[in-house]
Amino acid sequence: MMRFLGVAIMVAICLAFAGGLALTVWQIAGTPAPVNLPHLLAENLDASGVDHPITAVLLNFRSYDTLLEIGVLVIAGIAGISMAKTTSLEDPDLRTSDSLLYALQRWFVPLMLVLAGYLLWAGSDRPGGAFQAGAVLAASGVMMRLGGIPMDFLRPGMLLRFGLALGFSVFLLVAVASALAGSAFLAYPEAFAKPLILIIEVVLTFSIAMVLLALFVSAPVNRTEEPEEGEAG
């Protein structure tokens, strides 16, 4: 009886929440937008150094957000790595012996790397960019990890720390340099906008892939001596 009451109250709360939100959406939809953002963006796209509007927003107009985002990602990666037992970073127990899977990996890991490079390159004038390329790069690392291809570079050593910190530090360096050069924080000089954005995108890709891969790898694995679920009563 009490459970029914709890569910009923929760359903009522959620329905009220949905109703209020829907009403708000309806009212906002009735009013016109105060500024025409797409128009404003299209006017200023030439000054940004890239041709794709979303990349321009991410890495030029709203690059402060992206800087904070990569900061959050690095913090999450550090937190994840600190949870890991060091033994789980490379696990010979995970190595596959299945020939089909092995062949699949040999074909797919290079394909994914090429795809990541393509997406990064496409980001300047087409959909694509650092985030998507970073996700695909991380996925290729996950693929290697799933089949147990040893990844020595992911030991908590120099390369991992370097990869984690690279994106954030280069981004911050550019920001501080532009602030010292006289203009505002993170305002690129217009002549250098394109190469700067390119450099930042490359290091961001690398860093995002490292963070995601490190977070995936640092989850504790089932050990053989661990009691499996269902047999320890």
């Binding site: 979303i54 997406l119 959909p127 694509g128 960019g129 985030f131 998507q132 996700a135 695909v136 991380a138 996925a139 996950v142 799933l146 995601l212 995936f216 989850a219 504790p220 694995v221 089932n222 499996e228 679920e229 269902g230």
Partner: peptide, 30 residues
């Protein structure tokens, strides 16, 4: 299309692997 690209990479690939792995670890059988 940008978000679709990211969602295809993340939703189809990474999230699935993460959650499948975790579900196995936490014992989906029960």
């Amino acid at each position: 299309p940008d978000i679709a690209l990211a969602e295809a990479a993340i939703g189809a690939g990474l999230t699935g692997v993460l959650l499948l792995d975790a579900a196995r670890h936490l014992g989906y059988g029960r």
